[in-house]
Deep mutational scan, measured.
Amino acid sequence: MTSCHIAEEHIQKVAIFGGTHGNELTGVFLVKHWLENGAEIQRTGLEVKPFITNPRAVKKCTRYIDCDLNRIFDLENLGKKMSEDLPYEVRRAQEINHLFGPKDSEDSYDIIFDLHNTTSNMGCTLILEDSRNNFLIQMFHYIKTSLAPLPCYVYLIEHPSLKYATTRSIAKYPVGIEVGPQPQGVLRADILDQMRKMIKHALDFIHHFNEGKEFPPCAIEVYKIIEKVDYPRDENGEIAAIIHPNLQDQDWKPLHPGDPMFLTLDGKTIPLGGDCTVYPVFVNEAAYYEKKEAFAKTTKLTLNAKSIRCCLH
């Protein structure tokens, strides 16, 4: 018999989150649709729960009410004593943790798909938090293969000092899905179709896995975050240069030392320094102006996964 890495157990509980950011409308629209008619997301033997994560922000069509829901799922915020004085999103995070967690427990949901849009030209993107997770690498390989020839990129946010504390991190297997470009507060049919297909293929993978299909060893190309880059700023902290036209919409493309990065209003080009080629992502993302992030630098690498098969009882 072929030796293989056996994944822990079959997958039982899956959640699909929309509206973690209330103005990213593809996930909101799909989740609302699936709450009314969820036939397309159901798979035999699998509990799939669509869920609106930040209903107040969705109602106002804004990213958040008090603070970013997708950055506060750490033990400090989840452990705060519940009171009306807490920011709305912290209270909501505790409610979500109660419903789908608790985080880092045996009772937490197996998989959470968190649906997002970006204003950046990132196409279909899967966000991975753990480079050693054979199950998710296999799932992402399946999704990428199923979507081809449509490109699907994998963004690895594993980093020693950049801690995200994402909404989906309460699950055993957290999956971020990011599709763009799409303006905030807008629905685009092409973007919706791409996100819908990503979810379909992900659920198909889980179904095949649960039925005992063995997935042979595989490898995927990923883009691992190195650092986030702020806009150049003046002495008052105001933005002093904008994304250069040569960099705009060039997510995932190589940016070499000396290539144009920013452009000042008086026409001066600010190039990339250093001696390493990087791959920019979230270029000129609207939501990241407040976070002082013009783009993120990534490096390209390959992740390998062992063969996996479900432990059938």
Rank of each mutant, 00 (worst) to 15 (best):
Y153I: 04
Q182H: 03
D104L: 15
H208Q: 13
G101R: 09
T62G: 07
N236D: 11
L86Y: 11
L150C: 09
G22C: 08
L162Y: 15
L128K: 01
E76L: 11
F100C: 14
D249K: 00
F205S: 01
Q182L: 11
R43H: 05
D74E: 14
V90Y: 13
G79K: 09
E238C: 08
D275N: 06
E238R: 10
A296H: 09
T53I: 10
D190A: 06
D104M: 11
S131Y: 07
C4Y: 09
R71Y: 10
H21F: 05
K197A: 15
R233M: 07
E8N: 12
N54R: 04
V31A: 11
A294D: 00
P260C: 05
Y289S: 14
L30P: 00
E9P: 15
G273F: 07
K253N: 12
H313D: 11
K103S: 08
W252Q: 02
Y109H: 13
H208Y: 11
G237P: 00
N210A: 06
Y164C: 13
Q250R: 11
F29K: 10
L255S: 03
L69P: 08
H10M: 14
A93G: 15
L25V: 14
P87K: 12
G176L: 07
D259I: 03
F262L: 06
P87Q: 13
M198P: 03
Y64V: 10
T118W: 01
M82A: 13
Y231S: 01
L255I: 13
L272C: 13
E40T: 02
L25G: 15
S108T: 10
Y223V: 01
R43V: 05
P257D: 02
D259W: 04
L156C: 07
Y155D: 02
I206S: 04
K306Q: 08
F209V: 06
K268F: 09
I226S: 13
T44L: 10
D85V: 11
E106R: 14
H256L: 11
G237D: 07
F215A: 02
I41L: 07
L99Q: 09
E9A: 12
I111C: 13
I191E: 01
H313T: 14
Y88M: 08
K81G: 09
E235P: 12
T20D: 02
F282H: 15
N210V: 09
A241D: 02
A294K: 01
T167S: 12
F51E: 06
Q138S: 04
S307C: 15
V14Y: 02
K197R: 10
D234C: 09
P217Y: 04
A202C: 05
W34T: 03
G267Q: 09
V229T: 08
T20F: 01
D193T: 06
N117S: 08
S3E: 09
D68M: 04
V58G: 05
C152I: 09
E238A: 08
L128R: 02
M82G: 09
G38M: 15
D130W: 02
R132A: 14
N134Q: 15
E238V: 08
L312Y: 12
G18W: 03
S146L: 13
S3D: 11
C124Y: 03
T145W: 07
L203Q: 00
L301Y: 08
N77H: 09
K268I: 15
E36L: 15
F29H: 15
F262Q: 01
T269G: 06
K291A: 12
L303S: 00
Y153D: 05
Q138G: 00
L86P: 08
T118A: 12
V278N: 03
R188S: 00
E158Y: 03
H201Q: 05
F295N: 01
E106D: 15
A171M: 03
Y164H: 12
T299H: 08
G101Q: 06
N304S: 14
N117C: 10
P87H: 14
D193C: 12
F17S: 03
P149Q: 04
N304H: 12
K59Q: 08
I157N: 11
R309K: 10
K291Q: 08
E238M: 12
V278D: 02
V281H: 02
H141E: 04
T167M: 13
A148V: 09
T302R: 14
P151W: 03
Y173W: 13
A294R: 00
K306E: 14
L115E: 01
K80E: 09
V283M: 02
P217D: 09
A296I: 12
T277F: 04
D85E: 11
K300R: 12
E84S: 15
L78K: 08
N236F: 07
K81D: 14
P160W: 09
C276H: 07
E178W: 08
Y142F: 09
H10I: 15
G176P: 10
K59R: 12
D107A: 15
Q184A: 15
A241E: 00
V31M: 04
P217G: 07
Y279A: 03
N23S: 09
K32Y: 06
E8K: 11
S3G: 14
I6C: 12
F73D: 11
N70G: 08
A39F: 11
N236S: 07
G18Q: 01
Y109N: 04
M261D: 03
Q42C: 09
L126I: 05
A219K: 15
A7L: 13
K297V: 14
A287C: 10
L78M: 15
I16K: 00
N117A: 05
Q42N: 11
Y155C: 15
N121C: 12
G176E: 09
